[in-house]
Simulated assay, not measured.
Amino acid sequence: MATATTPPETPVRRAGPHRALRARPRARSRNRLRNWLLFAVLAGPNIALLVVFTYRPLLQSFYLSTLQWNLGSPTAIPVGLANYGDFFADPGTPRMLAVTAIFTLATVGGGMVLGLLLAVLLNRKLRFRGAARTIVVAPYVLSGVAVGLLWLFVFDPNFGVLSALLRAVGIGSPDWYTDPQWALVMVIIVYLWKNVGYVALIYLAGLQAVPRDLLEAASLDGASPLRSFVSVVLPLLGPTTFFLSITTLLTSLQSFDIIRAMTNGGPLEGTTTMMYSIYLEGFAAGRAGYSSAIATILFLVLFVITVVQLRFVERKVHYA
């Protein structure tokens, strides 16, 4: 009697550990490629815009600063660093740098102090607080040219509102339009009025992020409101202050519209900053190469200040 035999079982081939190890780098490589493609899709257009409209003009400005070229002229003469030498040899350069420094320090320092005081006031529970916040921030979104033209009527020594108020208390109006020092003060006042709302808005956001329990603990320990503000609130506002110090400094050094509308750099170049000098040399005098040299120097100043702030000042900022 024949007996049925069971066919031998086919052995199942299992993937060895070496095959699994080979599959992991492939999966990792596919994930990396997918991430790079996603990055290219999302960030590629922004990078392209930066390259075309920021870095390309910047490099072109560096190149133009090495040329003796009048705006509109078909020819340009390479002069190397001669434009930079002319800038530092110009007798008007120290005055321009001094005006730039005074304007920047006054607008940045004054703006941050006034903005912080306004933010503290607007953070309190006041009647019509929402309307007050809107009024404070509104000038920031207005056109600088329009603001400058309107304030010209305020500072008019004969028919202006300010001169009328000063005459009412027996004080004569300063020569805002003819005295270089008073003209610079006038421009600083208008710049602060326009931009202090931005600083106040950022500081207000920082104040609202301060934990209430820390202030209550300081109060229970016997600290006065002023002591609590100095010892608790100000250190917690360190990141906000650091951010504002960078943004307001960069904005102030590049201010143009208010100066153009109110003083046109005068009188006697009393309000001519580096940024406004770039405009005068490039578009009024037509010295495009020399203007590009000033623009390059201004860029290097901004770059160095920003690096110093990020490298050294940020170390003293407490983020927690």
Rank of each mutant, 00 (worst) to 15 (best):
Pro7Cys: 07
Thr10Ile: 12
Val12Glu: 05
Pro17Ala: 15
Pro17Gln: 14
Arg19Thr: 12
Arg19Gly: 04
Leu21Gly: 13
Arg28Glu: 08
Arg32Ser: 08
Phe39Glu: 06
Phe39Cys: 12
Leu42Val: 12
Ala48Ile: 10
Leu50Gly: 10
Val52Tyr: 07
Pro57Leu: 01
Leu58Arg: 09
Leu58Val: 12
Thr66Asp: 00
Leu67Lys: 11
Thr75Gln: 08
Pro78Met: 03
Pro78Asn: 03
Pro78Trp: 07
Val79Gly: 06
Val79His: 08
Gly80Ala: 09
Ala89Gln: 14
Pro91Met: 07
Val99Thr: 00
Val99Ile: 03
Ala101Thr: 13
Leu105Met: 14
Leu105Thr: 14
Leu105Val: 14
Thr107Cys: 14
Gly110Ser: 03
Val113Arg: 08
Thr134Phe: 13
Pro139Asn: 00
Tyr140Ala: 04
Val147Tyr: 00
Leu150Ala: 15
Leu162Glu: 07
Leu165Gln: 10
Ala168Tyr: 08
Gly172Ala: 08
Trp176His: 00
Tyr177Cys: 06
Pro180His: 04
Ala183Glu: 06
Val185Gly: 01
Ile188Asn: 03
Trp193Pro: 01
Gly197Asn: 02
Ile202Cys: 01
Tyr203Phe: 12
Pro211Gln: 03
Leu215Gln: 02
Ser224Asp: 13
Phe229Gly: 00
Ser231Met: 10
Val233Asn: 10
Val233Thr: 15
Leu237Val: 07
Phe243Cys: 06
Leu249Trp: 01
Leu249Asn: 04
Ser252Ile: 05
Ser252Thr: 13
Arg260Leu: 15
Ala261Thr: 09
Ala261Cys: 10
Ala261Met: 05
Met275Pro: 11
Leu280Tyr: 15
Glu281Asp: 15
Gly282Ile: 10
Gly282Asn: 07
Ala284Gly: 07
Gly286Lys: 02
Gly286Ala: 07
Gly289Asp: 02
Ser292Gly: 03
Ser292Arg: 01
Ala295Ile: 04
Ile297Trp: 12
Ile297Pro: 07
Phe303Thr: 15
Phe303Val: 13
Leu310Phe: 11
Arg311Lys: 08
Arg311Asp: 06
Val313Leu: 14
Ala320Thr: 15
Ala320Gly: 13
